[in-house]
Design a protein around this nucleic acid. Sequence first.
DNA 1: TTTCCTTTTCAAAACGTTTTAAATGGACAG
DNA 2: CTGTCCATTTAAAACGTTTTGAAAAGGAAA
Lengths: 347, 347
Amino acid sequence: MATLKQIAKELGLSPATVSRALNGFPEVNIDTRKLVEETAKQLEYRPNKIAQKLVSGRSGMVGMIVRINPRSPFDRTFAEIMLGLSSRLAQHDIDLVFQVASESDPVESYRKMIEKQIVDGFIVNAPVANDPRIAFLTKKGIPFVVHGRASKDAVHPYFDISNNGVTETAVRHLAALGHKRIALLNGEKTAVYAIDREEGFRATVADLGIHVPERMIVNGQPFELYGYEAAKAMLADATPPSAIICVSTVVANGVYRAAGELGISIPRDLSVIAHDDDIPQLRAENFVPPLTVTSAPLQASCGPLAEILITRLGLAQGTPLQQVAEAELIERASTAPVLSRLATPWT
Amino acid sequence: MATLKQIAKELGLSPATVSRALNGFPEVNIDTRKLVEETAKQLEYRPNKIAQKLVSGRSGMVGMIVRINPRSPFDRTFAEIMLGLSSRLAQHDIDLVFQVASESDPVESYRKMIEKQIVDGFIVNAPVANDPRIAFLTKKGIPFVVHGRASKDAVHPYFDISNNGVTETAVRHLAALGHKRIALLNGEKTAVYAIDREEGFRATVADLGIHVPERMIVNGQPFELYGYEAAKAMLADATPPSAIICVSTVVANGVYRAAGELGISIPRDLSVIAHDDDIPQLRAENFVPPLTVTSAPLQASCGPLAEILITRLGLAQGTPLQQVAEAELIERASTAPVLSRLATPWT
DNA sequence: TTTCCTTTTCAAAACGTTTTAAATGGACAG
DNA sequence: CTGTCCATTTAAAACGTTTTGAAAAGGAAA
């Protein structure tokens, strides 16, 4: 593969001139430029990124580190994120370096990657409250963007959906159908999104004057089995919920299975609504009956996420560094007006 | 961050000596070495990877390119691969550069990445027959390893499971239970693994003297819906299968749903067996009834895959560059002796 | 003719390493 | 005293770019 030096030698020019010609600097003679460009094309010249990086100090790569825990709730969704993100970043000629966080210390992997000096910034996902990674990167002054927020008043760059809004929308939808016994199958307690959803849930039911006992607000890793077990427990209660809000479609899947086994009909005896990340494999519209959801496609978050990071890296301008999107209610057949025998509120 | 030069200056040594001291060369005085090492530690020196790469010509990174098609059957499994692979590679201080194949031309992304000269090799997944990527990389002389095989007699480095063996095992298991009407819900026709499974299936049924009509051997993208629809069609046949072999657990999920809707009991009226990549979210043992499978955990393939690539890169020795693993039969409750009314063979 | 621009090109340094070839200094033998 | 060998260290080149400061060439104005 031809180098810049070779082109220079070939044409009897200095590397400096060739470099300038190829990088569109104004001070090079039009004929020289053409000559250089032609020769470069002919010799199939491609600038050596590594060399460029050495002098520019930039690597043109960003890192993404995910937890290795095979039970992590995000290995289902992170594929979606990576697909979208990587293609967006590629448009700016930025590569994505992927790594699994092998250490128990959550910042260790970031530290190592920074020390290697191979990335210019990071995409951080699945933030928890007071996330040490965010504190670390902020202290180090390394650019990053978070998918989600460390807290409602976070000062770092992020893209997030309104998780308070998700549960508020769900509760109001169910309340409008007459439901008074609404349960919440939330995500992991440490995840910021789950905290926000719980907050939105509590605020909205309070606003509507609905009382929800603590046993009807539960947390868990968003898997099918969690939905199944939690729903089974709730539906065995003396006063079971007439509606369940699920953290994700996978969890709703488990709720469906539990209801099926117990002979409880959806939506007649039980309304189910879930938040939908819109992952190709498990489509809410293919549920039987089709699942009502609050929808915020993960893919849609990739564009903004990439833009924000690029802006933060100083490679673009004008993008707000903090963005919040609203989820959309998509009404299908899993929610219906409450049966009168289930319409008595919890005491 | 301290550089090697700075350490040299600090100690009044030449960069060469410092470099040698830090890299464990024998010809440096023991006292000098200690001094250098201490100073390096004290100044928190970390070698600049980019600079090392420039001189060594190696980048210490390998690339993995996946297709962007959101309906691709592999976005479900590639997360698993990447998790395992990345952590294995990290042990050898190799980073994984991830990219989505945005071009319609399958080799275009590889070409670009090679031209940037930022990776030393590739992991290629989901090979198809006569895969152009493999031909391209071979021609270019770029090291790579394939997860799967381009063909049975492939000459490139690969790790694969015996896909002929998968269907052979399944067929023999069912035949031993008396089944004579065995259907195959295979993967996409272009995928090499599906070709091999079909071959193994046909060879084994032929060996056992079982005739299977062409309509009972079907191909499709391994999603739940495919399993559902294909099973519905087959079970509506005048002579429905008494056993179905599924390409994956997800597809088996669809078969279960179809059977449930048709009032067909598993395993009494229908035996179901699937191949299990052992993905955390959909566990065969949680099926109702628990699903009999041929199991070959994807995670288990990551170690060999990484070893092979590292060997191919010349960073290790002794690993065979081509490895084939056998899938294991795990008998659960979804397969049972055939009912006598279903025991008549297809004609 | 000199001075002063303008346009274009160049040599050299820089980025942070590794590696090659050579130098230094001391010990020892002759 | 000279030469050889050894252990250790060094200067310099190399990797492939970009960038800085300067120079060269040519023309116009004084």
